[in-house]
Amino acid sequence: MNIELRVNGEPRELEVWEGESLLFALRERLGLPGSKNACEQGECGSCSVMLDGKLVCSCLVLAAQAQGHDVVTVEGLAEDGNLHRVQEAFAETGAVQCGFCTPGFVVATADLLARNADPSEDELREALSGNLCRCTGYAKIFDAVRLAASR
């Protein structure tokens, strides 16, 4: 089937198989592999994107459900070639190791800071509790969130 949606501000039209997730469509059909395929059941947050301004797991959105909607992926956060402040902070604090969870954390953090400019320790932990990281033990990710919030 054919679907039309906005991705990172651009109108896109694509052919998908009806059983495919938005994650698959982004990665395999739109050439946007930044959203990651770690569990495909909403347990890790690696595929996090913004759907109409809400943080969601793109693996749990049927591609066809995105018809007519607005999607922002990790690839859409940088502006004019400059990293988003969250991306900059993640790179700076050592919040990235293998990096497979990073796009999801970056999107979730950008969403958190857009809603809550100065999150408390509990708030940031809870806001990121849908994103798993296996490498860092999270400490430097929290450093990155605090650094981004401070800017």
Binding site: G42, K54, V56, C57, L60, V61, A127, S129, G130, N131
Partner: peptide
């Protein structure tokens, strides 16, 4: 329920 992503959907 799940994480924020799941609660949003």
């Amino acid at each position: 329920v799940g994480g924020p992503q799941i609660r949003n959907r």
